[in-house]
Simulated assay, not measured.
Amino acid sequence: MTTNGAESINATLREPKEYPIIALLEAMQAKVSEWFNNRRNIMASINTKCTPLTPKAENIIRKIFKKASEMNVKQLNRFEYEVTGKENDAIIDLGQRQCSCRIFDLDQLPCVLALASYEQARIEVYDLCFNYFKLESLALAYVDTIYPVPQQEDWDVNEVEVLPKVLPPNFPIKCGREKLKRIPSVGKGKNG
């Protein structure tokens, strides 16, 4: 799960990785600041009156909506429904946001079976979606500004307690030139 993120950062910082640590940190700060600003601008351009969901979540729901309208729904109680279709049969609990197919539980977005029953329950579709699929949550993720680190002369180090000098660990020195590229894991070729 974390490999793709690490690979993306490594690819982005391929050149700055060779810099001294302060220059590397400044390059990282500049890149993260650029990303946050780009995403903030994207969030500002999204029309929030159409939907409270992120565009990706909205697209997922729209794709399965037609299939959901073709299913049979039988109410069991206020929030529980039995949904039957050509391939799927399930019990939906809209109050707990659960489905016996487990897709609703795991994805945290309504599955096709939950979408089939929302209208009969008189519940808004967007209320079935968890908050982190909503534009508000996405906007809050990028609300902070990433400021550059001030010049070293401007640092106030009077309040910082002096720590003992930390030396690098003792590793045996290997023969030959140091490898700059990593060795791909099993199953990954040159292009993987």
Rank of each mutant, 00 (worst) to 15 (best):
R39Q: 05
A114V: 04
A23E: 15
V157S: 02
I64D: 00
E161I: 11
A139D: 05
T12W: 12
Q152E: 15
K31I: 05
L76F: 04
A141E: 11
S137W: 15
R40K: 10
E124H: 12
K174H: 01
L163G: 03
K174N: 02
L76N: 14
L113F: 08
A114M: 01
D105G: 04
W155C: 06
N37V: 06
F171D: 11
N59W: 11
L113S: 06
R78Q: 15
Y81Q: 08
Y126S: 15
E82K: 09
K174R: 01
P172G: 00
I91N: 02
K31F: 11
Y118I: 12
D144H: 09
F79C: 14
R122K: 10
P164I: 15
Q152S: 09
K165V: 12
A121L: 05
P20A: 00
I91Y: 07
L113R: 06
P169S: 15
K86A: 01
G189P: 10
N41M: 07
V149R: 12
T2C: 03
N59S: 10
F130E: 03
R14K: 11
K188D: 13
T3H: 14
W155I: 13
V143H: 06
R177K: 12
C99W: 13
E7A: 07
V143T: 08
D156Y: 10
L76I: 14
L167Q: 10
R97S: 08
E34L: 14
L167R: 13
I21V: 14
K67V: 00
Q29E: 11
L113C: 02
N88L: 07
V160S: 04
I183D: 10
E161F: 05
T54R: 15
P55M: 02
G95L: 09
D156F: 07
C50S: 11
S33P: 04
E70N: 09
S137R: 12
G5Q: 05
T12Y: 06
S69D: 11
S45M: 12
A30E: 15
S117R: 03
L140G: 08
K181E: 08
P150A: 09
K190C: 09
K174S: 05
C99P: 06
I22V: 13
K66E: 08
W155K: 02
